[in-house]
Design a protein around this nucleic acid. Structure first.
Length: 124
DNA sequence: TCTATGACTCCGG
DNA sequence: CCCGGAGCCATAG
């Protein structure tokens, strides 16, 4: 099983205007304790092109402080472009995690699992 | 092999 | 609510 392919599917499933935490992505990939690997995958561009990486925030709703996005405020600008309200706390841009967290319903879960099944049965 | 690192998280005080 | 520390685990070297 290719965990990065799973991560790619999960990340691409995050809806416009919603966010997911690293831990949530890991959980949906079937590796609930691998939140750090999600950050690693994004940092190293292991998930293919045009991944909505800006929709991944930490469990507190803070945007990455490491700014692997080109400009220091790119992630914030992309989220604002999706109608997400950001506010500044110290050095971080934050959002209300309870308001924007993505909560996939049963149908979405099924869809994600179907896609995972598909790519794992049809390697490349 | 072994150690250090980190786009993370949980838990206790 | 806020910190600090511990746990976590794939990777890099």
């Amino acid at each position: 099983m290719d965990i990065y392919k799973r991560m790619e599917i999960v990340c691409r499933s995050i809806p416009f205007g919603r966010v997911a935490s690293y831990g949530q992505v890991a959980y949906l990939c079937g590796v609930p304790r691998n939140a750090r690997q999600v950050g690693y995958a994004l940092r190293e561009n292991k998930l293919g092109k045009d991944i909505p990486a800006h929709r991944i925030v930490n469990s507190k709703g803070q945007l990455s402080g490491a700014w692997h996005f080109g400009s220091s405020d790119l992630q914030k600008e992309l989220l604002e472009g999706e109608g997400v309200k950001l506010y500044r706390i110290d050095n971080y841009w934050c959002l209300d995690i309870k308001e924007y967290i993505w909560c996939p319903d049963e149908a979405e879960m099924q869809n994600i699992n179907n896609k995972i099944q598909y790519i794992e049965n049809e390697p490349d």
